[in-house]
């Protein structure tokens, strides 16, 4: 008991100290690295709060993908202008400390008040948990995401696609060499990739299949898949391409297409919109979503509308 409180205290204190370092470190690159560490401490906090699904998502997406995107953006700034340091000193604001203190007090007040309120007896979460056995899914989070509140998830996929389209619309595509940090022909890179890439596919598939009954799901699986893609992009095995072929176009949209096709198609059978007809539909949609999420995140990382393979 004492030990678990001590662990929670260390995690909570670690979050605060790391957050302080993330926003106050003098070097931007070190701030980004500290942010990844902060994300991993957050992942531990989620496990302590009995939310392993969120721990997986935080580690893979919050810390992993966000950190990788930030580092790549930092690299792009340096490529655009290597002469001039892209770093800027922290600014000064007389209002910063009081405003920050007030917002912390406000959030603490809201949080503590909400904790004090007697929890309502008939919440959507309780209903979802009660209905879980009827659905054939063992993981209530997957149940909520794919069955009970799947309009949210469908629109979430749309947001991901719009973010990719938006990013492509406002910035020119990356040059083929821009994203690669490892020289071609560096020893052992091939051997490392031969382990990492199949492993990322294996873990992603496991997370996807386990996600219906255990912690995991399409988003965590997609992020792990994207991590494999990031490794291939960094080592120039996959290069940013100019024109997305049919495979790329289908890849980033297949999650939405499968979701909409099944969710709307079901209406022909007299069902309500987006009522999924069974676990097979959940598996099918989650697989399609995993592919789309993985590819979208990898394309956002590469900063290009397509990825092309490199021979050799």
């Amino acid at each position: 008991m004492v030990i678990s409180v001590l662990i929670d205290f260390l995690l909570a204190a670690g979050m605060v100290v790391l957050a302080l370092q993330v926003v106050s470190d003098k070097a931007v690159l070190r701030s980004i690295i500290l942010f990844v560490v902060f994300g991993l401490v957050m992942a531990l906090a989620w496990t302590r709060l009995h939310a392993p699904d969120l721990a997986l998502a935080e580690a893979a997406i919050g810390a992993g993908v966000t950190g990788a995107l930030m580092m790549m953006a930092w690299r792009r700034l340096l490529i655009i202008n290597p002469e001039r340091p892209a770093d800027t000193p922290l600014g000064r604001s007389r209002l910063a400390v009081p405003v920050a203190l007030l917002s912390a007090v406000l959030v603490a007040t809201i949080g503590l008040t909400a904790l004090d309120v007697e929890s309502p007896t008939h919440t959507a979460g309780q209903v979802a948990a009660e209905e879980m056995t009827a659905t054939g899914l063992g993981n209530p989070v997957t149940g909520v995401l794919l069955l009970f509140r799947n309009l949210d998830t469908l629109l979430e996929m749309a947001v991901l696609l719009i973010a990719l389209l938006g990013a492509r619309a406002i910035s020119p595509p990356a040059s083929p060499e821009e994203a690669a940090v490892v020289e071609t022909g560096t020893p052992l890179v091939g051997a490392l990739l031969a382990i990492l890439v199949p492993l990322s596919i294996l873990i992603a598939t496991h997370l996807l299949l386990a996600g219906t009954h255990e912690p995991g799901g399409a988003f965590q699986a997609g992020a792990v898949l994207a991590a494999g893609g990031v490794a291939l992009i960094l080592s120039a095995r996959l290069k940013p391409g100019e024109r997305p072929g049919i495979v790329m176009q289908l890849g980033v949209t297949v999650g939405l297409i499968a979701f909409v096709a099944i969710g709307v198609g079901i209406m022909a059978l007299g069902e309500t919109l987006l009522v999924l007809p069974g676990t097979w539909a959940v598996y099918l949609i989650e697989t399609a979503m995993m592919v789309s999420i993985g590819l979208t995140l990898a394309l956002l990382f590469a900063g290009a509308p397509a990825l092309v393979g490199r021979r050799g």
């Binding site: 979050m15 926003v23 910063a96």
Partner: peptide, 25 residues
């Protein structure tokens, strides 16, 4: 404990947002 820590983190985030010049920060 977690609510208090998260509130502090939120305040730190607000502070960081206000003092940061660099958009990445």
């Amino acid at each position: 404990m977690f609510v208090l820590a998260a509130s502090l983190v939120f305040g730190i985030g607000v502070w960081g947002l206000l003092i940061a010049e660099h958009l990445l920060r």
